[in-house]
Each structure stands twice: as structure tokens, then as C-alpha cells.
Design a protein around this nucleic acid. Structure first.
Lengths: 203, 203
DNA sequence: CGGTGCATACCGACCGGTCGGTTTCTGGCA
DNA sequence: TGCCAGAAACCGACCGGTCGGTATGCACCG
């Protein structure tokens, strides 16, 4: 009898047992390395040093693990975005703050980004809708920031705001394929370079 | 009793039987829709309306299908790139031509791009090296184009050429997640907008 | 004693790949 | 031209193994 309440509680600090935490960490690492389909439940429980019974005690399914990963990623991004918007900065500073924050956050949680970019459409319909709705919210908020800057005249209107948004956010989603934590450039430096590049195009 | 006449392709460098072609088309479609691991060999032969024996007659393994898809994609991109370079255009025109061509080509073969972006590291070591070497060649050629423009002073040197290359090509790799063939904007228009945006940043 | 938090054993479905056999094509010889 | 032998093209039942998920047992705690 599964009494799962599927609705994710918003912004409530969720208590997690140590076992639960270990399972999620192992799943994230393995999904990032081998992909969702390439990772077996057996492999996850072995890496987390727990048993299958423990995993299925805390999670409904393998899909459930994937959803938890996506949800924590997107929740964090939306929280960061709202924190910047709340500061009421002028468009140029706001776009720069959003982009550098997003790039730094993505670099710090690169495994989650990798899983998301590769297996984003492996969820069942209900969970997929939830994830997509959050993503869309982020996309629209960013585009409105660009539109506002274009209306105010501080941004060039040569490229439609929608296209700017697609390029800027798409570039971040692509980070797992080129960002290396042990690479020659720090995440901070890359964030500045990339944000500067995007803002240069908007001059 | 469909009399499949092996019409000789006059200009095609590689001869393929009709059966071979159908298998590759089906594999491409299914890989793009469900991912490599999410697609079974049974599913491919069913979609191609051939038998398993036929598939393993023409291909060594499931991996072999994936490699064929990657190889044709990258070979086409490299050929396009070289064709542009051979024209000896000034950097600004060359970058524009490369980018618009790449975007249009990617839009036209969006399924291949989708498979590549999702399952690019599912190959065995030997084939992986071959694919990566070709990709790197493209990357370096593009970066050198940007560097030349920066040396000549027609491009801003505010952003390192390597970062410009990462952003520009990474954005193209991201196309499968936002480009829709039946969307409101044509591939040509998108190519112009995006190339214009990148060139604006290089002013 | 009932319920939580696991462990263990196990299930049917499905996977990529194989292999012995059959059909179809092709070239050489009479 | 007619015929035939060997090669290439193709068939599909079958295999060992792995998968996600389940049923049940049990220690421990309030």
C-alpha cells in the first residue's frame, strides 16, 4: 500500500535520512557517468552500500530518483533567479547577475546538469509536466528581463528577445559537455567571460 | 514481391542497399526518439520491416549503427566547413557563412544532432577516438578563424577565441532541445538571427 | 505487540547477439 | 541459350544474462 503524496512540498526543508541521502548521491553520480538507462538499480544500491529493499522503501521507482534530482536542480535555479529579481537591478546588471550566478551554480552542480541535459525526457507524463512548467517559468522570466532592457533602450533590439534567451540559456545547458572542474579556467572566470560575451552582443 | 531494383546512385560515393538504408533510417528515428539505450534491436528491425538476421548481416553490432550515424553527421559538417574555408572570405563573412551553414545543416538533420547530443559517449574507445578527433578538428578550425579576425582587428578581443568557440558551437549542439521544424521561424531566419547575435558580440 | 526500517530471495520480461538453414543472385561452361 | 554451383542475402527461433520491481522475513523500538 503506497501512501505516496506526490505533490512536492514547496520550499520546506525536507528531512532526509542518511540512507536516503546516500542513495541519491550514488544515483546522481552514476546517472551522470553512465546515463539513466545505462545505470542499474543494482549498481545504485551497491554504490550507496545499501540494499534494494532500502531503496524501494524510500523511493517508489527508479524514475522517482531522477525526478528528485531534476527537482532539486530546478528549485535551486528558480530560487537564485528570484533572489536576483528581488534586488530590482537595472536590466544590464540583472542579466549579468543572473547569468554569472547560473553559470557558477551549474559548474558547482555539474553532475545534475549533465543528467538533466542527457535524460531530460525520460520521465513519465505527470512528472515531465511539472519539470517543464518550472523550466518554462525560468525561460519566460529571463526573456522578460531582456525585453525590458530592449524597451528601455539599453539593449539592442536587433535580435529578438526569444532568440537571445534561447542562445544564452541553451549555452548554459551545454556546459556539461565542455566545463571541467579541474580545467585551466575557474568557474568564476568563465562566468565573467560568457556573461560579458552575451552582454556585448546586446550592446 | 517488391522488385527492389538496385538503382545505381550516380554521385553517391558509398553504395547502400535499400535494406541497409531502411535499417539506418529506422535506427536514427528511434534513437532520436527514445535514446540509444531506450531502443531495442527488435524495435529497429520491426520499424525497418526487416529481420534481425538482415541487420546483423549488414552491421556488426548495435554500436555500429550509432557510429554510422555520427560519422555521416561529422563528415558532412567537416565538408561544409572546408568548402567555406576554401572560398578565402574575410573573417567576418567566413564566420557568418560557417555559422549559418552549420545551423541550417543541423536543422535539416535534427535527428542526427539529437542522437549525438544525447548519446555521444556511448561508443567503444576506438570509435570514440575517431569521432572526437573529427570534432576537435572542427573546433580548432573555427577557433582559428576567430583568432585571425581578432588579430586583424575586425573582431573584439574582449572574449578569448576559445570561449567564443565554445559558446557558438555549444549553442548549435543545443539546437535539438529548442529547434522545431514546424515552429514559427524558419531555419534560415533562425540561422541569420543567431549568426547575427554572435557577430554582434564580436564587434 | 504493532509498525518502521531495512535485508534477502526471487520473478517475469526483455535484452543484444548467434547460428543453422533457406532463398536469391551471378558468372562460367557447354 | 540452358544449366549449375557457389556465394551473397536474408530468415527467425533461440540463448545466456540482466533488468526493474516485489514478496516476505525480521530486528528493534515505543
Amino acid at each position: 500500500m503506497t501512501e505516496t503524496v506526490p505533490v512536492p512540498e514547496s520550499s520546506a526543508p525536507v528531512r532526509q535520512s542518511a540512507v536516503e541521502r546516500r542513495i541519491l548521491d550514488a544515483a546522481l553520480r552514476l546517472f551522470a557517468e553512465h546515463g539513466f538507462d545505462g545505470t542499474s538499480v543494482q549498481g545504485i544500491v551497491a554504490a550507496a552500500e545499501v540494499t534494494k529493499g532500502a531503496l524501494y522503501h524510500y523511493f517508489d521507482s527508479k524514475d522517482d530518483l531522477l525526478y528528485e534530482i531534476y527537482h532539486s536542480l530546478i528549485a535551486r535555479q528558480l530560487a537564485d533567479l528570484r533572489a536576483v529579481l528581488a534586488r530590482g537591478l537595472p536590466p544590464r546588471d540583472a542579466v549579468r547577475a543572473v547569468l554569472t550566478g547560473l553559470i557558477r551554480s551549474t559548474a558547482e552542480h555539474i553532475d545534475e546538469a549533465k543528467v538533466f541535459s542527457r535524460d531530460k525526457d525520460r520521465l513519465d507524463d505527470a512528472r515531465m509536466r511539472s519539470v517543464r512548467a518550472d523550466r518554462r517559468r525560468y525561460h519566460v522570466a529571463f526573456r522578460e528581463l531582456v525585453e525590458q532592457g530592449q524597451r528601455d533602450g539599453v539593449f539592442s533590439a536587433d535580435t529578438p528577445a526569444e532568440t537571445v534567451t534561447i542562445v544564452a540559456l541553451g549555452m548554459v545547458n551545454q556546459m556539461p559537455s565542455w566545463y571541467r572542474p579541474d580545467g585551466p579556467k575557474s568557474a568564476d572566470r568563465l562566468a565573467d567571460e560568457v556573461a560579458g560575451f552575451i552582454l556585448a552582443a546586446l550592446r
